[in-house]
């Protein structure tokens, strides 16, 4: 499958309400431009992100998934981001083991004051995904 003309990567980002969603808001209020590749889903906490959400996004058309939460120690719910880190570490390794580029899943810590960081993360990830191209493995229609 060749990459279609004009293809742009699509990132589904799960942002925790207290830090990262606010960080993305700050990028907006500070007018820090970043690629239009990202689509944000607001969750209360990065610990709310079920690894199956990640695979579902990759299956349905996302080229990368970002999970963003409060820095360790700053979680609004104390520990949610630490559970998320474990689950997603394992998720990422399992994805790689099953043949999906691990770079497609990223977990990062963005605080409410890090608008610039949020923009930078999106830029970096977009660049990585542009190199990788679309998820080819999970896009075939019909029975295998």
């Amino acid at each position: 499958m060749s990459v279609r003309e004009g293809w742009r990567p699509k990132i589904v980002a799960f942002c925790c309400n207290w830090c990262s969603y606010a960080g993305a808001d700050l990028a907006g209020t500070s007018r820090i431009p970043y690629p239009a590749s990202v689509r944000i889903i607001r969750v209360p906490c990065s610990g709310r992100v079920n690894p199956v959400f990640v695979v579902r996004a990759l299956q349905r058309g996302a080229d990368g998934v970002l999970v963003a939460g409060c820095h360790p120690g700053d979680c609004h719910y104390s520990t949610g981001n630490l559970y998320a880190r474990r689950r997603l570490l394992v998720t990422r390794r399992l994805l790689a083991y099953m043949g999906i580029e691990p770079e497609r899943l990223r977990l990062c810590w963005v605080s409410a004051s890090e608008g610039e960081r949020f923009a930078k993360v999106i830029e970096e990830m977009t660049a990585v995904l542009e190199k990788l191209g679309p998820v080819q493995q999970l896009r075939e229609e019909g029975p295998p």
């Binding site: 199956v52 695979v55 299956q59 399992l94 994805l95 493995q137 075939e140």
Partner: peptide
């Protein structure tokens, strides 16, 4: 399909 089989085995393993 490949994708749903992937999800099945991924979820079971996890």
């Amino acid at each position: 399909g490949v994708a749903t089989q992937f999800i099945f085995h991924f979820t079971r393993a996890l």
